[in-house]
Each structure stands twice: as structure tokens, then as C-alpha cells.
Nucleic acid binder design. Structure first.
Lengths: 220, 220
DNA sequence: CATATAATTTAAGTATGCTTAATTTGTAAC
DNA sequence: GTTACAAATTAAGCATACTTAAATTATATG
């Protein structure tokens, strides 16, 4: 129970860095709901531990050691999510929060056992890939945000952002879940909202919502 | 993830207080492997929180609020133990350590769900009673330490102390487990050891070991 | 009943991970 | 190329939960 904060920081860096592997302190602060000063503090420690490359006022990047550590934390989190959903039968929109608390506590052996019980899943209940014990990360099918779907197109939900519990709760009420089909009927330019159909039910959704649901475009 | 230490202190007090509900700081320090000074420190905080009655140099006692809190922690721990053993199939002697890490993290809702999955167990894998959500603590059958068994008597294992992982591991190797029959063949006065039979296998065990295994005396 | 000793408490100090406020730096706009 | 602004860092301080060493208290024994 010692490295909870460090583990959280490394996870956030791993999950939110850009294509070149960099991330701004302010983004970390936002995700973790702490001050920028707290982030600077922790970056120094992580740097001293050899988990990140860090130059003052320059970018932050994971070292291979940091990458390994972070990837393992992400693995732990996602395996807990699958386990809680698949075995314990917690609802899809509740597992994120619970898994976040448990991910720091379990032994590696328990995580491996849970993975086995879930039959070595490749994706978590939100569609995010689960790194294997050996460090392999399953590839996702090509997908785009729902907000980029064109009028008249159909998409299959392959991933949703789990940035917020209320968001998950809400889309779950709309019937949005993994592998569900969404048909984009109409876009309303004036407020960027859009009318979608989910199993014959029409819903009007905001751009913000659509940006956090990812679909594989289906041929008509 | 805030009250880990407080929760541990309250659990230890709950589980180790004497018949009049009191406990010495030194015993707490021993169980938690911290200094006596650390205990004094925490006792002040727990007292300020209203969880214990505490007078300097006098005894320590749980208030009803502290009792409730502690009992809930014990409940959480023991439900995790049963779950890890019964559902996850971890070996009997491994669940204590793992449960200890998880007990602080799960939500009350998850604990209730795990309890339901295990079919509302009354005892954990070491024979300790599990307080119900309503606060009821199942009674144990009348039992004595194995060290008090007389030569020629037979006892059924109803409980073992889970004070130490190595201890559990060792007795598990001897074949000692819940509901197992133990026959006391001979006592050796000179070193307080004793010769026992477990499913036709003889073992010589120390007094220390025998003091931590509890049996229900069986009629011949 | 004085005193020795063991348990307990206090005092001072450490590490971690935060906070707010002040300062420094990088960069984008003029 | 200044300058203005936002982002990042430093500084000072706080809470938690420990540590060791010194002081205090309870009590057990002669």
C-alpha cells in the first residue's frame, strides 16, 4: 500500500501521452485532480526512480522501466474490470471505479488468476485493450469517434472512454454498449448535436458525448 | 484509500482485546509491527475520532462507534477470505495476506455482492465467524486449544489462528485444516511437544503450534 | 513503603504527498 | 524582438504516520 500515488501518475501518463509519447504536467494534474505543483513534485520523484525522462519546462516521457510499470498497472486495472463484470456481474458502468480501488492492492499472482478465470480477455468492458503478462497489447480494429460518423452511416461500438462515471452511467441508459449498432440519422449544425438510432430507439445526443464513443464504420 | 492505518488499528483492537474489552498498547504494536510510540500517536487520533475510550497509562476500549467500524472491517476481511478461497480457489493458507490488502479498497456494495456469491458464509476459511451486515456475529461451538487436549483424546479442528502466514503454510503441509480430526497420542513433558495423528499420519508438533489450533473435543 | 523495571508517553525528526502563493520560463502575438 | 500570458516550478506550510531517544508512570518486589 505504498505506491498508490506513483502508480496513478504512471497510469495517467501511459494512457494520456500523445503520439510522440509526451504529456504536459497540466493534463496529468487535471486527470488526477491535483495541483500543478503536486505534479512537479511527483515528476521529480518518478524521474529519480528512473520511471520517466524529465527536464524542467520540457516534456515528460516514460522510460522503458516506467512504461513497463505503467503498462502493468493498466493491465491490473482492466483485468479487474473484466473480472468484476464477467464473474461478479457488476454492471458495465460501475466497474471502473471499483477496479480503480482494487488495482493497487492485489498481488500479481491474484491478477494472473483472475485473468485465467476470465479466459484471458483481450479487451476490458469499455473496449480498451488489456496488455498481456508478457507485455503485448492487443490491437483495436480501425475506429473513429461517433462524432465523425456521416449522416446515413452505421457504426458498431468498439470502445468508449471511461473518463467519468456519470458519462458511463448515462450512455448505459441510452443502451450504448460494446458491439451495439448505432445509426446516424441526422446532424443538427446549429448546436452540433445529432440524432441517432439504437435498436430502433431514437436519441438526441451532444457532440461531447459523441466524441467519447468510438465506432467501427459498417458497410450498409 | 485514506484510513488504512486507522482501520488496521481498529481491527487489531477488536480481535485482540481481552474478556473485559481492553487491550495494551504494546500488544497492538506487536501485531502491527510498529513502535509503541506510533501506537500512542494513533490512540490519540482514534480517541479524538470517538472510536475508542483512552486515558493515558490506562486501558484502551472501543466505543460503540469504534466497535461498529472495527466489526465491519473484520467482516470485509473475512468475506474476502471466503471469496478468494471458495470462488477464486486460492489455497487456504494464501487468502489471509491477499484479503488483508483488498479489505481496505472494496466498496460496501461489492462486499455485499461477494457475500451473496459465497452464499452468506458464517465462518471464514480459518473458522473465524463473519459478522453479518446487521452486525450479528455467529457463535462458535465450544472449543479448546489443541495444546489442552488430553492424551488419547480426539478433536475436530474448528478454528486456527491466522496470525502468521508461515504458520498457516506449515500446518497446511501437516494436513491440518478445518473439520480435520486430530488424535493426541503422546505428550513429551521435557520439551512440551506432542505427538499427534492426522489421517493415520504421525507428526510431532511444538506447544507453540498446538496453542494456535483449536479443536472441538470428540467423544471416543 | 521505597525502588526497580517494564510499559507508556513525549519530544524531536523523517518521508510522503498534498496545498496556496510567488516566481520563473517558454511561446505566441504584436 | 518585445511583451504578455499561460504553464511550470519553487517556496513555505500542513497532515499523516512513522522513527529513535528521553522522560514519565504504574506496579510488583523486596
Amino acid at each position: 500500500m505504498k505506491n498508490i500515488s506513483k502508480e496513478d501518475y504512471l497510469s495517467v501518463i501511459y494512457k494520456n501521452r500523445n503520439e510522440s509519447g509526451e504529456i504536459n504536467p497540466a493534463l496529468i494534474a487535471g486527470k488526477l485532480q491535483v495541483s500543478n505543483a503536486a505534479v512537479t513534485d511527483m515528476l521529480k520523484k518518478l524521474s529519480k526512480d528512473g520511471h520517466i525522462l524529465y527536464k524542467k519546462y520540457k516534456g515528460v516521457k516514460l522510460t522503458s522501466s516506467g512504461e513497463e510499470y505503467a503498462q502493468n498497472m493498466v493491465r491490473r486495472h482492466r483485468i479487474w474490470e473484466v473480472f468484476l463484470h464477467q464473474i461478479v456481474k457488476l454492471p458495465w458502468d460501475k466497474v471502473h471505479e471499483e477496479a480503480h480501488r482494487l488495482e493497487h492492492s492485489a498481488s500479481d499472482e491474484l491478477i494472473d488468476r483472475l485473468e485465467e478465470m476470465c479466459d484471458f480477455p483481450e479487451y476490458d468492458p469499455h473496449g480498451d485493450p488489456i496488455p498481456s503478462k508478457a507485455g503485448k497489447v492487443p490491437k483495436l480494429k480501425k475506429h473513429i469517434p461517433l462524432s465523425d460518423l456521416k449522416e446515413g452511416e452505421k457504426g458498431k461500438v468498439v470502445r468508449v472512454n471511461d473518463f467519468d462515471d456519470k458519462f458511463l452511467n448515462y450512455i448505459s441508459e441510452l443502451g450504448i454498449k460494446l458491439n451495439e449498432m448505432i445509426f446516424l440519422k441526422e446532424r443538427r449544425a446549429f448546436d452540433d448535436s445529432m440524432l441517432i438510432m439504437i435498436s430502433k430507439q431514437p436519441w438526441n445526443i451532444s457532440r461531447k458525448l459523441a466524441e467519447n464513443v468510438f465506432v467501427e464504420v459498417m458497410k450498409k
